[in-house]
Design a protein around this nucleic acid. Structure first.
Lengths: 251, 251
DNA sequence: GTATTTGTTCCAAATGCTAGAACTGTTTTG
DNA sequence: CAAAACAGTTCTAGCATTTGGAACAAATAC
């Protein structure tokens, strides 16, 4: 949902989807008033939309607090689609192996509407903290390993206005970013060095299908302590190997 | 989506969601005319709804055939919700082990709006055929192992009209079904013997949380050939064990 | 080459959505 | 403990929005 309203689109459906996204994204329950405020809608209107989502089975209402939360029907929407995605089908074992080998959270992402979007994740069992990337999340193009990888390999254009500073390490000038993209194209993988969160490094490598078309990328989020101990090369080698093994599958 | 329209609900949102479900469920692409016909809407109206879904990023349009298909944004809806479900989080390894041990497809289901709904699936690698149950699918209450299990343990009421015959083995009288439910309560698991598809047996066992509340069930779909070879007890023991190990987790 | 599809655009009519105010119950506050 | 503030829900009436038939162009079938 980028623009609040487009030329000729269905207002009701659009707002209903925004509402559903909001409830689906956050954990826990949501009050009507808060939802209405967030979306800039009158309370009664939000309430009506909620009732429709309720009837359709996408949200449920807590019996006592009267607040709204996601309901299981939501799974019916994305489930079949997700299960048919070749990248996800074959990516499961690859991510599992990668998480096992690196002892970190691993991810699969695709390029969607010009930016990276997480389509699968697998976290190393035993390691809690660094599991911030939910499936469906869109990442910053200039401050994520996935984003920089796609910018580099698809040679996408980007404007200076987009380069928002997120940490002291974020690349905020086109000059810096362009140099980085050249390096990424040369080495075949990308590294995000605390550019998005000061606690994390991340790595990403491209996945190609049988006809050599870029179809996605494999990624890895690594706490800084682990990077200083094992070195960047260790992790970049792991993601590159994982991406290569996924590229060998029939995608 | 049970009833076509409810008393006081948003028509546009409701139809838009039905449209999105339709596209998300089926594989491949969909033509505007077919979608309109299926939903009983005028073509121009369906087209407008599609444009809204397009703008929102939930569907994409093929450049040449002009047909519509699901797009990645769909994952953003269910992704975060699915990843936070304790049953799914802890169920992954359990289903994997179960699929490995049984060499069959295994499933996780919950009770939703009075019927069983698949929330996770894992198919045994190497075995293609019996992977019919998509995540999000709702099953027959009287002709599925999950359905009968929930009917038995939650003591739900069911009417004779619902007992549609699907195969020669389907239980189509309340008398038969009641006897079956008594047996299920006694043995603690349920078996579906070709009652839904003539090629499949299926097994289901209940999952309880720490406070002994029924929160879901573990299931297994087994081709008849394998049942005759290994016996029912083999598979019922496997699902029961898997369900017990999942019940031991913090759900 | 014709005829029947397809997806898309247009527009007028009225449906049904919108949003403010009123209502009821619960929680917070003085 | 009163009373005020705020929760979710219901009501209503005006008018913006959706609606759906018909017209359009392009692609496909015959």
């Amino acid at each position: 949902m980028t623009s609040p309203r487009t030329s000729t689109a269905n207002h009701t459906l659009f707002n209903g989807l925004r509402l559903l996204e909001l409830i689906a994204a956050g954990p826990g329950e949501f009050a009507v008033s808060d939802l209405a405020k967030t979306l800039g809608l009158p309370k009664s209107h939000a309430h009506r939309l909620l009732r429709t989502l309720l009837d359709a089975g996408y949200v449920a209402q807590s019996g006592d607090t009267r607040k709204y939360r996601s309901d299981f029907r939501l799974l019916a929407l994305a489930g079949p689609f997700a299960e048919r995605l070749p990248l996800r089908v074959h990516g499961g074992p690859v991510l599992r192996d990668l998480s096992e080998a690196s002892q970190c959270s691993s991810y699969l992402a695709v390029l969607h509407q010009g930016g990276p979007l997480v389509v699968m994740s697998d976290r190393y069992r035993g390691l809690r903290p660094a599991h911030a990337l939910d499936v469906g999340l869109r990442l910053e193009r200039h401050a994520s390993a996935f984003g920089k990888l796609f910018l580099a390999l698809k040679r996408l254009s980007i404007e200076a206005a987009e380069l928002k500073r997120l940490t002291p390490y974020t690349l905020t000038t086109l000059r810096e970013l362009r140099a980085e993209l050249v390096a990424i194209r040369r080495q075949g993988y990308s590294v995000n060095r605390r550019e998005n969160s000061v606690e994390l490094y991340s790595f990403a490598a491209p996945v190609y299908n049988a006809t050599a078309v870029l179809v996605g990328a494999v990624g890895l989020a690594v706490p800084i302590a682990m990077v200083t101990r094992r070195g960047e090369d260790h992790f970049s080698a792991l993601v590159t190997k994982a991406a290569a093994s996924l590229s060998a599958q029939p995608l």
